[in-house]
Simulated scan of single mutants.
Amino acid sequence: MPATVLTIGELADRTGLTTSAIRFYETKGIVTASRNAGGQRRFMRADIRRLSFALIAQEFGFTIKEISDQLATLPPGRAPNKADWQRLSQQFKLHLDERIARMERLRSTLDGCMGCGCLSLTECNLYNAGDAATIYGRGPRFIYGDKSFAEDD
């Protein structure tokens, strides 16, 4: 039977992270250590999952703050159960769906007008004449999901 608590070194061995990286994640609220009588950090086995979630979410471009905010919805002081992870999963899926949609828009329009305001492509005059997309804000507005002016309603 595996131990229910891990030292920082054991957690590092299991996750592939350095101990300094684990301490960094601890400062960001991704994991929380308890202390033994000697003041040494002890982590729950469930922290392996929290760190794994953080690593993969970072790989897909989520910020530490976004990840920390998601993990903050899990109950403190105990290992999250399946229902806890399902609740987090439902919320996180919304964020993933948004990113996937944005990536698909980028893939399909990268060689065309993105609504960024550069007006360097000939089709920009059709889709973003006079940089009209600026009314939506800064950046590549059509990639962010704003409708181009050439699209039918």
Rank of each mutant, 00 (worst) to 15 (best):
M1P: 09
P2C: 02
P2F: 01
T4A: 11
L6K: 09
L11M: 06
D13C: 05
D13M: 06
R14N: 01
R14T: 08
T15V: 06
G16V: 07
L17T: 04
S20M: 04
A21R: 14
A21T: 14
I22F: 12
F24G: 02
F24I: 00
F24H: 14
F24R: 03
F24P: 04
F24S: 02
Y25A: 04
E26L: 03
T27D: 09
T27W: 13
K28G: 09
K28D: 05
G29A: 09
G29F: 14
I30W: 11
V31S: 07
A33E: 05
S34P: 06
S34I: 11
R35W: 05
N36R: 11
A37G: 12
A37W: 06
A37N: 12
G38F: 06
G39W: 07
G39D: 08
Q40L: 02
R42V: 02
R42D: 03
F43S: 03
F43P: 07
M44V: 00
R45G: 06
R45Q: 09
R45I: 00
D47E: 10
R49D: 14
R50L: 03
R50V: 01
A54D: 05
A54G: 06
A57S: 15
Q58K: 15
F60W: 10
G61H: 08
F62M: 14
K65T: 13
S68L: 03
S68Y: 07
D69I: 06
Q70F: 11
Q70W: 14
A72R: 04
L74R: 07
L74C: 10
P75H: 11
P76E: 11
R78D: 07
R78E: 14
N81E: 10
K82Q: 12
K82G: 07
A83K: 11
D84Q: 09
D84Y: 11
D84V: 09
D84I: 06
Q86Y: 14
R87T: 14
L88P: 11
Q91V: 03
Q91L: 09
F92H: 14
F92L: 05
L94F: 11
D97N: 14
E98T: 03
I100D: 07
R102D: 00
M103H: 04
E104F: 00
L106E: 03
L106S: 12
R107P: 05
S108L: 12
S108V: 05
S108P: 04
S108A: 15
L110S: 12
L110H: 00
D111T: 04
D111P: 02
D111A: 11
G112Y: 11
G112N: 08
C113F: 07
G115W: 02
G117L: 01
G117C: 05
C118D: 03
E123C: 14
E123Y: 08
E123V: 05
L126M: 02
L126Q: 12
Y127G: 00
Y127A: 10
Y127R: 13
N128I: 00
N128S: 04
G130L: 06
G130F: 13
A132W: 15
A132L: 01
A132H: 08
A133Q: 02
T134K: 05
I135T: 10
Y136D: 00
Y136F: 15
G137A: 04
R138S: 12
R138M: 03
R138I: 00
G139E: 08
P140A: 01
F142P: 00
Y144V: 00
G145Q: 03
D146F: 15
K147W: 12
S148C: 15
F149M: 02
E151S: 09
D153W: 13
D153H: 10
D153I: 02
